[in-house]
Design a protein around this nucleic acid. Sequence first.
DNA 1: TATGAATGAGACTTCATTCAT
DNA 2: GATGAATGAAGTCTCATTCAT
Lengths: 227, 227, 227, 227
Amino acid sequence: MTDEEGEAGTATGVEVQPWIPFEDRRRARGRKKEAVLRMAVRLFLENGVHRTSLAEVAAALNITKPALYNYFRSKDEILFECCRLGREMYEAGIADIAARDGSGLEKLRALIRSYAKVITQDFGQCLVRFDDRELSPEARADIRRAKRRIDAAFREQIARGISDGSIRPCDPKVAGFVITGALNGIGTWYSPDGPLSVDEIADGFVERLVDGLAVRRVPAKAKVAEA
Amino acid sequence: MTDEEGEAGTATGVEVQPWIPFEDRRRARGRKKEAVLRMAVRLFLENGVHRTSLAEVAAALNITKPALYNYFRSKDEILFECCRLGREMYEAGIADIAARDGSGLEKLRALIRSYAKVITQDFGQCLVRFDDRELSPEARADIRRAKRRIDAAFREQIARGISDGSIRPCDPKVAGFVITGALNGIGTWYSPDGPLSVDEIADGFVERLVDGLAVRRVPAKAKVAEA
Amino acid sequence: MTDEEGEAGTATGVEVQPWIPFEDRRRARGRKKEAVLRMAVRLFLENGVHRTSLAEVAAALNITKPALYNYFRSKDEILFECCRLGREMYEAGIADIAARDGSGLEKLRALIRSYAKVITQDFGQCLVRFDDRELSPEARADIRRAKRRIDAAFREQIARGISDGSIRPCDPKVAGFVITGALNGIGTWYSPDGPLSVDEIADGFVERLVDGLAVRRVPAKAKVAEA
Amino acid sequence: MTDEEGEAGTATGVEVQPWIPFEDRRRARGRKKEAVLRMAVRLFLENGVHRTSLAEVAAALNITKPALYNYFRSKDEILFECCRLGREMYEAGIADIAARDGSGLEKLRALIRSYAKVITQDFGQCLVRFDDRELSPEARADIRRAKRRIDAAFREQIARGISDGSIRPCDPKVAGFVITGALNGIGTWYSPDGPLSVDEIADGFVERLVDGLAVRRVPAKAKVAEA
DNA sequence: TATGAATGAGACTTCATTCAT
DNA sequence: GATGAATGAAGTCTCATTCAT
């Protein structure tokens, strides 16, 4: 059904053919689906999924309610597609980092930055701010699996870092919860109009999470003690 | 109100009085309100506020739906009362700590511990897991104010710590978000049946947030640089 | 849930008790459910199940649509209850006849009469005129089972009649289909205002089905042959 | 229209003509209409008219929903055409028999056989299994007239049979209802995969309806009386 | 105080049908 | 002739809330 047949169609599009809005149609459809999702996710985030009726989504797009059903089978599906897009953003970041080299700490830093960037975007917030239970059982399972994979990615780098000496010995599970929890929080207060840019936020979070809050206790006495 | 526990009220019921005591009435009413809230918050957390109908709450309490309206004017009010109880728990902790002595870091540690303990309890999760927008405008304002006060408490101690040299120089706002975000996350995964006790969680979080993840880099050069 | 506790309640009702509309309530509820069913079945039969909205049923009863949901969980359930009442009427007739004595033919006559009487009543027509597939799977199974039992009752008496010599040797299945088919047809044309009374119809059907249409061929040869 | 069978049309297509033949066009159109009707009637019978959407019909034919509107103006019209085809089958049978000679009983036998054959076919079941009220007023009137004509045909032969001594004196209306009711019933249980062939069914029904169920009572007295 | 009943508002969804291409 | 998109009307059901008792 989603048989994306590559760009062959586009190629023929070069010779502007009169009776072939064929490929165009499909592209238009894709664009419209996307537009629906973008509007839906915005409204869902702004007003809550439950308090956003499909009528509102449709109205905001200047179409009628049943028109939405041309693109999606149900509200659930819309919600899930939003989440799926978010999921893919996280996963892309994780996959990218997994392919790189670096110590556990370095990769953890990269994960934090990547996650921070995703969660400042609409779709990225879906995984965190929408309630699993709104989804169909299958969709829910899908999303939950994704969340577990994300958690696992963090824990893995923490464990690696502990092994390679770049990260302090600690419980990777708790440490992971600290990190993802802190990052998820961003979704609740971040605004693109706010004073902090995404990069500043990402850097700030990396620094705080990596270095902690306490001043390094390396006073003279300590040095002696260490010596 | 939360501490009005035990069967004291029932005990006096021994001398079967026909026209039910004076003071008892009020206390019984209070106990019932409390029971409603305890059940409501549990169901709200378990299934989501929107997916929990008052009929379900009533049924779980073996009373009828309209009976709830004897104690609360609306679902909103029930929700707000839950949140208010949570709010009071946070505020009690904050007030307690504010009254103590200690460096910024010490008090921050205490705040983290206190917050962690509250957020592992049903009412404590209300502030975080329920959507503001479900509440009436006044209730919402009340809760938002409370959240700001809580944030402010963290930031204040961070700023104090920076001043008194116990905490690294950093943006207190970002640092506060890191901390409260991490702590709020607890509400999404904590289970009393889980492997970690509340105290273990609290300690773990304090440690990670305060000490960070990176191993302390205290090489010879560093010492020199600091000197 | 339908725990009709007999007429005990009515008995106590003699001493008019002030605070006990208790039993009354239940009876009123029962009466209302019944009223709903009676109105629903009438409209369903008159306009077709699908073309009868619950709004129409409610309006005809001078109540609002959701009020129906106090008594029934869904349109399906209303439909099923109608069918169930019909089913019980058939089964009562069958059970009654099963308890009597008589040859296969005599009992078959009684079955035909009984069936004819039921199918001239609203609820009796439900089994025949409503589409199985409108029902939930369970309800559907229930009704189909009932239909099979009814068919079986006819076939059983036909088979008995063949054995005891009161009925001609023939395929009981086909014969049963002839009979029940003919009887079911009554539901499509019978009207209480029509020229034929239920008894006349029943008698007419018994006669035609039992005696057939052809005049008895009893020519001289035949007599000899039989002699 | 129903007999326009085989691939004759396709065969002429061998000589690939660019601007599609003249007559072929109309014939192709006719074939497509027919295909739609055949699929529609099947689905209507299988799932019920109301529960069969035009989208399903179209999908089953590998065309799109609006394409159906090239051949039919509405769902009603499709339904009516199905019924009309059924009607014509019944009427053809009746006309055929009317043209023959024979006693009332003989013709009645023929009518029963004819009706039985029609009602085992998809289109033949339309008149009986679909609800009149689904049709437009005009279509409905047409179909109801047809039903009355069919009933009249049965009654006429019954009356003739009574006159010519081949059929027992009885109420032709009731007798007709017995017969058509029994025959209509076939539509509800007949399956081409079942154990009984159409002819066996037809014979069985003729026999049961004509001869009845009771054994012939030809006691000695009766003989005397007749003598 | 507590209850059964009732209500009004609103949500999601389906579908026959039309329109521009 | 055929398609994708869009629409309006309708239907079932849920739920917070109120009322009479």
